[in-house]
Write a protein that binds this DNA or RNA. Structure first.
Length: 548
RNA sequence: GCGCCCGUAGCUCAGCUGGAUAGAGUACUUCCCUCCGAAGGAAGGGGUCGGGGGUUCGAAUCCCUCCGGGCGCGCCA
């Protein structure tokens, strides 16, 4: 119920239906299922309803005839300037600007909380994203994950959810061991192509930085712990701890520069340390979904929609990655996340079915749709019409830091969420840097700059604007362009709601561009009348409301 | 081979829980602009919504099939 104007129209139609039921035009058992929607084009008014199309059969009438009857029974309202029957039987409503002035009032009165919803009702949603292994710098793909995850978190927060941002990382597995060996090799002066270089070692230049810091006894602060480089090249455990801390800190600095922070860092190793992995295995076995074959322990995930059964414990006694994943998502449920959103690169999609199956096999009352996965597709970075592939720092890929340094934090965030996450994304550095209206970030910032400009001039002329003056002059917002702007404004709450419901933050970017467009149109055409203080104040009311 | 995602204007993409002549930005064509930022405004041309079939009063949207592109199908993570 986020749009009061739409809701009022919906209620009016209900009244009309009730009237037709009373006079026998409609059967009294009629189910009033219909929608009132914003019209796509101005020719079709502000709102339209398909009610006559849907009820025509029940009424035994042609849609347009039923529409006529409904319109005749519709209560009159001052803000409705015209009601029209169009096309196959749509009823179009034309509203006066006054119908939207309440939205501006709401914006002024609610300030920063304008547009917030409460579908979350204070429930807890855990949003897990990025979750990069601490084995190197974050790349563009992580950047997309960071932007999408953070914006999902923000949008859920705006819908009344209590949001916990969570970063899960592996600090103990084979990849980390590989990292430790790579740092050790660098510390010993071994080059990547030398015979003693570890198999599949990390070859990037950043490994040299880690090794040097370790040898120099540098102190690294990450996730609330200080780790000092011990300098001993034979102590692989010490190297591992230092390397993880070092790269975790680097990732964290990049994320902070990107405007992203986390509430919880969850270590994969804690699942083992706290016995969660063993516990999960025991429960799966106890519920009869496990069996042994070829010396390994399997889970019958095919009972829960997976393609084939999966190995939980390998024949060598160690666990596959699959089991900690199940234990981890189980812990989200146990920690009280009524909703869990897991943001991943789409190359992980193969693991979704088995994790969900594992959670169901626990028989712990976890909902079938838990967790909700949001997958993002690959990012291609372009500059000068060519694909950018290399980063000095990491070697084989473009880092998030490269992008932030080159195009700035806000533009990077905007472009990384501007597309549906399941579409491949082309990140055009030239476009993102452009100071022209081709660049949507520039276009939006430019709209803001124009508002700021007017406000500044107001102050320079010694004039005052405040909320009360704005509220007193709402009725002056009566021009066509002001109405167009107010209509855009009135969509805000439902855009926020839809973005939250569908976990689609790109809806926000699309909306912002449209809002900026309405603003530019308003600015470009209206006459700024300096000798009419009242009119000026009223117009500035809207400027300020939109800015907020 | 199987599974998931994508295919919409020259380009980059919205729209996809079914609705009216399929939208935005950009590019292109014509016209306008010396008062708040012209980094502007007005108008116009441009589409078999990948192809085909089906369901429906109505399909870009739902179902089937084919084509094209990406990704995934390990006792790797």
């Amino acid at each position: 119920r986020s749009d009061p104007v739409k809701d009022q129209l919906h209620d009016l139609v209900l009244e009309a239906i009730a009237a037709l039921c009373a006079d026998g035009t409609l059967p009294t058992s009629t189910q009033p299922v219909f929608v009132v929607e914003r019209s796509k084009s101005r020719e079709h008014g502000d709102f339209a309803t398909n009610v006559a199309l849907l009820l025509a059969k029940a009424a035994g009438k042609k849609p347009r005839d039923l529409a006529s009857a409904l319109v005749a029974a519709l209560p009159l309202r001052e803000e409705i300037t015209k009601v029209e029957i169009a096309g196959p039987g749509f009823i179009n409503f034309f509203l006066s600007p006054a119908a939207y002035q309440g939205e501006v009032r709401d914006a002024l009165e609610s300030g920063a909380s304008f547009g917030r919803g409460n579908t979350g009702a204070g429930r807890t949603a855990g949003v897990e994203f990025v979750s990069a292994n601490p084995t190197g710098p974050l790349h563009v793909g992580h950047g997309r994950a960071a932007a999408i995850g953070d914006c999902i978190a923000r949008v859920l927060d705006a819908n009344g959810w209590h949001v916990v941002r969570e970063f899960y990382y592996n600090d103990a597995g084979a990849q980390i061991n590989n990292l430790a060996l790579s740092v050790q090799a660098r510390a010993r002066g071994v080059e990547p192509d030398a015979p003693t270089w570890p198999t599949d070692g990390y070859r990037g230049d950043y490994i040299k930085d880690v090794a040097r810091a370790y040898l120099d006894g540098e102190s690294v602060h990450a996730d609330g712990v200080d780790i000092v480089g011990a300098g001993d090249v034979d102590d692989l455990d010490a190297i591992r701890c230092f390397g993880v801390a070092y790269l975790r800190r680097e990732q964290d600095l990049d994320l902070r520069a990107f405007g992203v922070t986390f509430d919880t860092y969850f270590l994969e190793s804690s699942l083992y340390a706290d016995g969660k992995v063993e516990e999960t295995v025991k429960e799966l076995v106890a519920h009869g979904h496990a069996y042994e074959e070829g010396g390994a322990l399997w889970l019958r995930t095919t009972d829960f929609g997976d393609d084939k059964d999966r190995v939980m414990r390998k024949s060598d006694g160690s666990f596959t990655y699959f089991l900690p994943d199940v234990a981890y998502h189980r812990s989200k449920w146990q920690r009280g996340y009524q909703r869990a959103i897991t943001e991943l690169g789409s190359d992980h999609h193969g693991s979704l079915a088995r994790v969900k199956a594992g959670l169901q096999a626990l028989d712990a009352g976890i909902p079938v749709g838990y967790p909700e996965y949001v997958l993002h597709q690959m990012v291609t970075v372009m500059r000068g019409g060519e694909e950018v592939k290399l980063s000095k720092r990491a070697g084989s890929y473009v880092t998030l830091r490269d992008l932030i340094d080159e195009v700035g934090r806000d533009a990077t965030r905007y472009f990384l969420i501007a597309r549906k996450s399941d579409s491949q994304l082309i990140f055009d550095i030239d476009l993102a840097r452009a100071q022209t209206n081709d660049n949507p970030v520039y276009y939006i910032q430019y709209a803001h700059a124009r508002v700021a400009s007017v406000m500044r001039q107001l102050v320079e002329r010694g004039l005052v604007w405040n909320r009360d003056i704005g509220l007193a002059h709402l009725a002056r917002l009566d021009s066509e362009h002001e109405q167009a702007l107010m209509i855009e404004l009135s969509r805000y709450a439902e855009v926020v709601e839809a973005a939250g419901a569908n976990l689609e933050p790109h809806l926000i970017t699309t909306y912002l561009r449209e809002l900026a467009g309405a603003f530019h149109a308003y600015y470009n055409t209206h006459q700024f009348i300096v000798d009419d203080a009242d009119l000026r104040d009223a117009r500035l009311t809207l400027a300020s409301a939109v800015r907020q």
